[in-house]
Design a protein around this nucleic acid. Structure first.
Length: 592
RNA sequence: GGUCUGGUAGCUCAGCUGGAUAGAGCAACAGCCUUCUAAGCUGUGGGUCGCGGGUUCGAAUCCCGCCCGGAUCACCA
């Protein structure tokens, strides 16, 4: 039972006794005492004032007097706030118990656990990953870790959009202008190579449009009539007809892209348990839509297109199959859902996709429900905000796209620069370890920078300003961890005798209290789908430790029992920081 | 226009299931390294919480209206 639960039970009894109030949980408001007052927990007594028919301060005083006992050592009443000082014994035992539980705060995953599938990343295969994908990947990975810590069996998945007109454009441009260039011959990562040809297509295509317009054609027509576009569409048709040559080229170029993506994912530290490809799922979607039509869930128009009528759900009508029988985005998502449900006993399906697709997922949820997928109605669209640059959204045409690979490399390079002289204080440090530290710190800075922002909100990234390594940052927390680890290594060399009663410092109690919040923080992060909650917690914990570390010595503390206590406290904090960072996908270095 | 979403310090963000004098970081300024890692600690300055009403003992937080920004409402994905 937590401290809050114990106190709440006592308050319930006292309030009944004193004023005859049958208090419900909502009326018992316990909060952390503000630092300017003495105490650890504060009871807000306003909810009882009316029934008590007394002044708030007096009610607080009366309740306080009755609460004093084993748990509540003393109290002070300020207006309607009852600030309680919790007995030191409680905190000492509390830390003892937490220290013994290596997985404190984490709910174990059992065979009975429900299964949550988390889809994230979901790239197109015509260009490399950019900053927007970075946010997606980091959120997806982190939320998977967080849900697992909440006791879900989690399956991480990725849907790769490997077919369609966009990849044909790259293929076509490569055929015409590529001269057989390969990742090997050019030294480019496969995804970047394909991305370059996608850009090349766009450039040549626009040239053609301009020529047609100059020749007197209006722009709309020119866009459709440009020879390159016609060729790309012809290629898509050939692809759908399984033309061996087109398929072979498609496979070759996609494989290049995947090799490139794999490198990026690896550097980012994310992975998937299973990957789906739209080239495999879109036909399945068609079948499902046709089934739905037979069952009268959808209807066919005269031009042979298939629609879902969502007007009863307050939405409009939604196209599911084009008049030429080809599938649209929605069709593919239905097919993917079908295959996933065939492969896994999904209890909850989570889609990590940008907020620009909210409407799409609202519709998908209704459609899946109609088609009889149990998770359809309750599917979660983990909708996150855009990453904006100082002058607005990223636009590939304006060359303002922040490339994921370049960004990570730059962060690691920055970390290297920063750590260059700091790392000198460490003994026996070799280049390999230095590089490893720079990698962890650089990526830690980037990941924390992105994850600390409420996922639902748009966030700003300024490429001109490098991401900080001081203050509320990943490296700050990593540094705190490294510091503790350094102390603990030294502590291991000396005997720690845990005997005798000790008195705790306020900052020590503050730290223990913080640690007791960890389970709730994980729970809240899971319920709200918010890694930012973990970030805020890790930061506050690190901050509190640094303040303690500054004021008190751990290893030079003369009192043996105190010293042993502080070593244990530090160890628990290091562990908690490491676990919190793990939930964010951020590694912590032993030294930095 | 309909729907959704945001507006908090110069900048980036917390706080939003109502509680005490609205918090961090960056930037600025002032201190602290013969002592366990100074990527740290301590302090100063900086706010009509978009505006106006309402509910309440109490509103940045809840409700209504308005202003400003973003997203979305495709036989694109």
């Amino acid at each position: 039972m937590t401290l809050e639960q114990q106190l709440a039970a006592q308050v319930k009894v006292v309030v009944k006794d004193l004023y005859g109030i049958e208090a419900d949980d909502k009326q018992i408001q316990l909060q952390k005492t503000r630092p300017e007052f003495e105490g650890n927990l504060t009871l807000v007594v306003f909810p009882f004032v009316k029934a008590a028919r007394k002044a708030p301060a007096q009610v607080a005083q009366e309740i306080g007097e009755r609460l004093v006992g084993e748990l509540v050592e003393r109290f002070n009443a300020v207006q309607g706030f009852l600030n309680m000082v919790i007995a030191q014994d409680y905190w000492v035992h509390c830390l003892e118990k937490i220290a013994a539980d290596e997985r404190y705060g984490l709910t174990p995953v059992t065979p009975e656990s429900k299964l949550m599938m988390v889809e994230y990343s979901s790239p197109n295969t015509n260009k490399p990953l950019h900053l927007g994908h970075v946010r997606n990947n980091l959120l997806g990975w982190s939320i998977a870790q967080i849900q697992e810590a909440n006791g879900w069996k989690v399956v991480k998945t990725n849907i790769v959009n490997d077919r369609g007109i966009h990849i044909c454009k790259s293929m076509l441009a490569w055929l015409r202008y590529g001269n057989g260039e390969t990742p090997e011959s050019s030294g480019k990562k496969g995804d970047h190579l394909i991305g370059d040809y996608y850009v090349r297509f766009d450039k040549e295509y626009r040239k053609q449009i301009a020529e047609l317009v100059a020749g007197g054609m209006d722009e709309e027509t020119a866009k459709k009539e440009a020879p390159l576009m016609k060729e790309a569409q012809a290629m898509l048709l050939k692809w759908e007809q399984n033309d061996p040559e087109v398929r072979a080229l498609w496979k070759k170029m996609n494989d290049w892209v995947y090799a490139g993506f794999d490198e990026t994912y690896k550097m980012m530290g994310v992975s998937f348990d299973t990957i789906y490809y739209e080239s495999n799922t879109y036909l399945e979607g068609k079948k499902e839509v046709e089934r739905g039509e037979k069952e009268g869930l959808f209807y066919r128009r005269e031009d042979n297109s298939v629609w879902a009528d969502l007007t009863k759900d307050g939405l409009d009508e939604k196209l599911l199959l084009r008049s030429d029988g080809t599938s649209v985005y929605m069709t593919q998502d239905i097919g993917t859902a079908k295959l996933r449900f065939r492969d896994y006993p999904i209890d909850k399906m989570v889609y990590v996709v940008g907020n620009e697709q909210e409407y799409h997922f609202k519709v998908l949820s209704i459609l899946l429900d109609r088609l009889g997928f149990p998770f359809g109605k309750e599917l979660v669209h983990f909708s996150y905000g855009m990453v904006e640059l100082p002058n607005g959204k990223m636009k590939s045409r304006e060359g303002t796209v922040v490339d994921a690979d370049e960004l990570m490399a730059a962060m690691i390079q920055d970390a290297k620069e920063v750590s260059k002289d700091k790392v000198l204080r460490l003994n026996d440090i070799n280049e390999e370890e230095q590089n490893e530290i720079a990698r962890k710190v650089g990526l830690g800075a980037l990941k924390y920078f992105i994850l600390k922002v409420d996922p639902r909100k748009n966030m700003l990234f300024n490429p001109e300003e490098s991401i900080d390594f001081n203050g509320n940052t990943g490296p700050f927390i990593q540094y705190t961890y490294a510091r503790i680890r350094s102390v603990l290594r030294k502590a291991a060399e000396q005997e720690q005798a845990k005997t005798g009663k000790i008195s705790l410092e306020e900052k020590e109690i503050e730290l223990i209290q913080r640690i007791t919040e960890f389970p709730n923080v994980i729970k809240q992060a899971g319920e709200e789908f918010s890694p930012a909650v973990i970030c805020n917690y890790a930061y506050a914990l690190a901050q509190a430790f640094n303040s303690f570390y500054h004021d008190y010595s751990i290893l030079n503390e003369p009192d043996e029992a105190k010293r042993a206590f502080r070593v244990q406290l530090s160890a628990v904090i290091a562990r908690t920081i490491r676990q919190a960072m793990m939930l964010l996908g951020i590694e912590v270095p032993e030294r930095m």
